[in-house]
Design a protein around this nucleic acid. Structure first.
Ligand code: MN
Ligand code: MN
Ligand code: ZN
Ligand code: ZN
Lengths: 140, 140
DNA sequence: CAAACCGTTTAGAATAGTTCTAGAAAGAAT
DNA sequence: ATTCTTTCTAGAACTATTCTAAACGGTTTG
C-alpha cells in the first residue's frame, strides 16, 4: 500500500487544523492515521516512534497529542487514574475496558442505547457522554 | 439526613470487612460514613482529618481508602487522568462531571436507561458499567 | 497482666506520568 | 540571506500515588 505522495494528505490535514506540518507532527500523524483506528498512550506512541526511523522527544509527543486532540483529529479517553489513553476513532462510540490488561476496545454507539438521560443542571450543557463497560476474565 | 451511628456499628462494619478497628480507620470511617454520601479525593479527606482532631498520615489515608474499596464500603470513580475520586454512595448510579470545577454529582440509575448493551467478549464478564455525563458551563 | 506476635501506621524516599523551562532548531516571512 | 516566530528538545520540576522499613499498637497467649 505505497502511495506516490504519501504525505500530501497528512500535510493538508495538519494545515487545515492550523498546525504547521513539521517533521515530527508528520511522522506521528503517519503512525496514527495511516493504519486503522487505535487506542494508545503517549509512551506507547513514543516507543513506537523511537522504534521507527523518527527521533521525537516525549515532550513533543505529549504536545502533539494535545494539539491533535484540540484540533479534533483524535480524542482522549479516561478509564484509569494515572494513565491517559488516546483514540483515533472520532466516531460517536463507547468502550470496553479490560481491567486486567488495560486494553480498550470500541463499542459502536448503536450497541449502547441510552433511551433516557437526565437534563443537565441549570447553566450547564452536556459536552459528552462516556459509557465504559469494565470487563474482567470470566472465572468459571 | 444525617444518621448518627455509634462507634460500635462502625467497629462491627470494619470487623465484618476483616479490618481491625484501629484508631485511624475508625476516625476515617466516622468522617466518611456519618454524613450523607460524598465524593472526595484522598488529599481532601486527609486535609479534613488534619482539620479535625485526628492525625493520620497520607499513606494511611490511601491504604484505608483502598481497603474500604476492596471491602465494598466505598468505590473509586475515574473521571479525569491523574485524579482519583472516591464515592461513598454504593447504590447503582452514574455521574455528572463538571469539567471546569472538577465536581461530581450523582445521577440516579433510573435517570439513565440503558436499553441495550453489547455482550461481553468471549471469556470476559462485565464488572461494571460507568456512565459519565461531562458538563460545561452553557455559554449563551 | 505481661510478653509476644503480627498487622498497621508513619515519615520520607521512590516512582510514574505528565508538564514546564529555556535554549536550540527549523519553518515562514521579508 | 536575514529576521521573525513557532516548534522541538533535554532535563528539571511537579503531582498524585506507592513503597520502605522502622516504630507502634491491637490482639492473643501464657
Ligand atoms: Mn501515558
Ligand atoms: Mn487524589
Ligand atoms: Zn475508541
Ligand atoms: Zn456518586
Amino acid at each position: 500500500m505505497t502511495t506516490k505522495r504519501p504525505y500530501s494528505a497528512l500535510i493538508d490535514q495538519l494545515k487545515t487544523a492550523g498546525l504547521r506540518p513539521t517533521r515530527q507532527r508528520l511522522a506521528l500523524a503517519k503512525l496514527l492515521f495511516e493504519g486503522g483506528n487505535r487506542h494508545f498512550t503517549a509512551e506507547q506512541l513514543h516507543a513506537e516512534a523511537m522504534g521507527a526511523e523518527v527521533r521525537v522527544s516525549l515532550a513533543t509527543v505529549y504536545n502533539t497529542l494535545h494539539q491533535f486532540n484540540d484540533a479534533g483529529l483524535l480524542r482522549e479517553v479516561v478509564v484509569e487514574a494515572g494513565r491517559s489513553y488516546f483514540d483515533t476513532n472520532m466516531d460517536d462510540h463507547h468502550h470496553f475496558y479490560m481491567e486486567g490488561s488495560g486494553e480498550l476496545q470500541d463499542v459502536d454507539c448503536d450497541e449502547v442505547v441510552l433511551t433516557a438521560l437526565p437534563d443537565a443542571p441549570e447553566g450547564m450543557k452536556v459536552s459528552r457522554v462516556d459509557v465504559i463497560i469494565r470487563l474482567n476474565p470470566a472465572n468459571d
